[in-house]
Design a protein around this nucleic acid. Structure first.
Lengths: 244, 244
DNA sequence: GTTTGTCTGTAACATCATGCAACAAAATCA
DNA sequence: TGATTTTGTTGCATGATGTTACAGACAAAC
């Protein structure tokens, strides 16, 4: 599992986009959905690791949707609701949801829950996010997350822009795993590529090009950021992580 | 806040010490406690950033303790319990705990929760400076809160204006945490940015620029006060705090 | 081997956020 | 009060970032 892919289901556009953006800022790929049909479409279109499902979906009912989804799939689901009454909560659990959280919730608490559920669901996967990781080494390069500095093999600090740094981090967290443009864009919260809002999408290509020009010895023959034609890009070297 | 100080409350000696040791190995200051009396003593004795509270405390009841503590203090609390039944969980949340974790838990998950709660506590309250902290050291600099003096790495005192000092304090209280202009403006009570009255908002930018010109060696390439494009600013170095 | 269509690299451009100097207003001090 | 310092505002320069266009690379079909 490269980057967790979450579905944010809420019929209120504002809430939906806010949640989506917040999750993206925290390293997840978040895909906004407004209806059950949307959910099914997304699930059909690709891997989904977790669904954040609002209980009050206008005319549709989140709990019922949850039950129906669970009958077919094994996707982890967190129910979100403005109703915190006990029976509502119980109904949530009985529907098979993995967790239940009441609005208004603390954003960090939401993240903790999301991570907890993902972790539980993940057992088999080898890719773990260690939030305490502070330094990454790869091919002689060093990235110090705390200072947000990139040091070349020659020991020189290289200035990367915000986006470039973000891109690098995404790859460092997922070495040897090909990432699609959509995944990268979602992780970086780039307006343009994936998600629901359309832009006309070569932003990631250009960004990769810029990063290459700064960290590849021969940008024309990339040794680190390799192109996976038809798919996306991969960081093709081992990454060593150090704690803080 | 230099190193988070945690209270580990559990009446079972073995569990208590194991947890304490584990947290210490992971960079926290962990103080074992066996009773509510202990907790109060520790809180009285000095800053406590988070309490890990076992729900089953022999004759005492963790949830009740939690409620009582919350009534008086604003210390973040994570409830730990062997009971994972739903109603227990709910009682935990209703008691005002910041999070809830069931035994047996995954150690990494525990760490993640602890960090999440600490981070949140920092975000919400850290714009307030702790009275007990008198000196801050960062990147060779020293800020003496009592005398309100800033000393450069070379040992020279640097004159900062009131606003500049205020800005510095806000960052010192929140190292490595990106702050938005709104947050900063709110903390400084600047008329202009976030508040309610509208001004035309570049006050914080300019203020940051002024502070940079006084404390950055190369203001053009800030090492301390970094820009987070699209977000705000971060203090990108560790801060060591000293008591009074 | 050549053709053909698609995918990728990248220069050039457009747009927008930020840095900053200069000015104006406000506060402080003598 | 008048001088001086501090602080907020404005406009412009700069740099970062997304978009577009086009050329070259690649793969499949011929």
């Amino acid at each position: 599992m490269a980057i967790p892919r979450l579905l944010v289901v809420d019929d209120d556009t504002e809430t939906r986009m806010m949640l989506t953006q917040y999750l993206r800022q925290n390293g997840f790929i978040a895909l906004p959905c407004a209806s059950e049909a949307d959910i099914r479409a997304q699930i059909g279109a690709g891997r989904i690791d977790l669904i954040l499902l609002d209980v009050m979906l206008g005319d549709e009912n989140g709990v019922e949707i949850c039950t129906r989804l669970r009958a077919k799939q094994d996707v982890p689901i967190i129910l979100v609701s403005a109703l915190s009454a006990d029976h509502q909560r119980m109904a949530g659990y009985e529907s098979g949801a993995d967790d239940y959280i009441a609005k208004p919730f603390n954003p960090d608490l939401l993240l903790a829950r999301v991570r907890a559920v993902l972790q539980r669901a993940r057992r088999s996967s080898s890719l773990i996010y260690r939030r305490s990781v502070a330094t990454f080494r790869f091919a002689g390069w060093t990235y110090d997350a705390k200072r947000d500095e990139v040091i070349s093999p020659a020991g020189v600090q290289v200035a990367l822009s915000r986006r470039e740094t973000g891109l690098l981090k995404v790859f460092l967290a997922n070495p040897h795993i090909p990432l699609t443009r959509e995944e990268i864009a979602a992780a970086l919260d780039v307006t343009g590529e994936g998600g629901s809002d359309e832009g006309s999408g070569r932003a990631i290509d250009v960004l990769v090009g810029r990063l290459r020009s700064k960290i590849e010895q021969t940008p024309k023959e990339p040794k680190l950021l390799r192109t996976e034609r038809g798919t996306g890009y991969v960081l093709a070297v081992d990454v060593e992580t150090g704690g803080d």
